[in-house]
């Protein structure tokens, strides 16, 4: 009964849905790492800032959640730009540990600011409710809520937009150039500081999108970003550090493995199995599925 195709297809869909969130989060992380070589540990908190911003726009101002998602992406993108300009840029060239401590400080600042603003009103969890929460597509073997279909569609639309930006524009070429060789890019006249700022802004915007979509399908708290961010780190290692393709494939693979592990082995194995997958991949391909392109 539990091996019924409809049931397995349903579990696959759950995996792809949560995998899409990991994919967005990992893509933002890998973009920042690829260009700036900075590991932003506060990426999960940027994700939750995005989720709460969308929640606030919907709950307090009545803005449609799917419009709020874009406002939130822009808002958190600007926050990312500010963090890069005021936080990471002054530390460039100093010891790596300074960047690590800056991102740890950001975790605490963002978590506590969100907790202070939201917990008194919404207790442990908040959730964004769309007008489609009760609507489902009947796909024969399974029913799919509109929100899940929108989440999948929106994720891929944004990923397509990012692909076009990176591979079909002059700006994307400069960004890839900076990622491949920062010094050479600077010598070629590329304003690498501007590229850093843009990368951080886009990465933060993607985190906000991941958070907002996560907040539409799951309840969330100011502390909910920590685990997805750890998983996003695992995804970029799995996919290959600095590789966007790796983040996409790694994110989806991670979500699907996690879903099936929970289904067959139980919730206790949810996180462990996906990390076992990471270890297995690293044993065979220590550089990840996709090697970082030089």
């Amino acid at each position: 009964m539990i091996l019924d195709p409809g049931v397995l297809l349903q579990v696959l869909i759950w995996g792809l849905v949560i995998g899409s969130v990991y994919m967005l989060l990992a893509t933002g992380l890998t973009l920042i790492f690829g260009v700036m070589k900075v590991i932003n540990f506060a990426h999960g908190e940027l994700m939750m800032t995005g989720a709460f911003l969308t929640f606030l726009l919907w709950h307090a101002l009545g803005l449609h959640p799917y419009l709020g998602v874009f406002v939130s992406m822009a808002g958190v993108g600007l926050l990312g730009i500010a963090v890069e300009r005021l936080g990471f840029r002054p530390l460039r060239g100093t010891a790596k540990i300074n960047e690590i401590f800056l991102s740890i400080a950001l975790i605490l600042i963002l978590q506590n600011a969100l907790a202070r603003a939201f917990i008194p009103y919404f207790r442990e969890y908040a959730q964004i409710r769309t007008p489609y929460a009760h609507r489902v597509f009947d796909l024969g073997l399974l029913n799919l809520r509109y929100d899940f279909a929108i989440l999948l569609g929106l994720t891929w639309a944004v990923m397509l937009g990012l692909y076009l930006l990176l591979f079909r524009t002059e700006f994307g070429r400069e960004m890839r150039g900076t990622s491949q060789n920062r010094l050479a890019a600077a010598l070629m006249g590329i304003d690498v500081g501007r590229i850093d700022t843009a990368s951080f802004g886009i990465g933060a915007g993607l985190a906000a999108l991941a958070g907002s979509l996560y907040g539409i399908i799951n309840p969330f708290s100011p502390y909910s970003g920590t685990l997805p961010a750890i998983k996003a780190f695992a995804v970029i290692i799995l996919g290959g550090l600095g590789s966007i393709r790796g983040a996409v494939l790694g994110g989806l693979l991670y979500g699907v493995v996690e879903g099936f592990a929970t289904f067959f082995l139980g919730g206790a194995w949810r996180d462990a199995t996906a990390f076992i997958l990471l270890l297995l991949v690293l044993l065979v391909r220590p550089e990840g599925i996709f090697r970082e392109r030089a």
Binding site: W14, Y223, T262, F263, G267
Partner: peptide, 22 residues
């Protein structure tokens, strides 16, 4: 007897299994 970790908020794989067991 399905379980989930404290703080987990996505229960769909476990619930899908439970539904299949009627």
């Amino acid at each position: 007897t399905e379980r989930f970790k404290v703080g987990e908020t996505d229960y769909r794989p476990q619930l899908t299994k439970i539904k299949a067991l009627a």
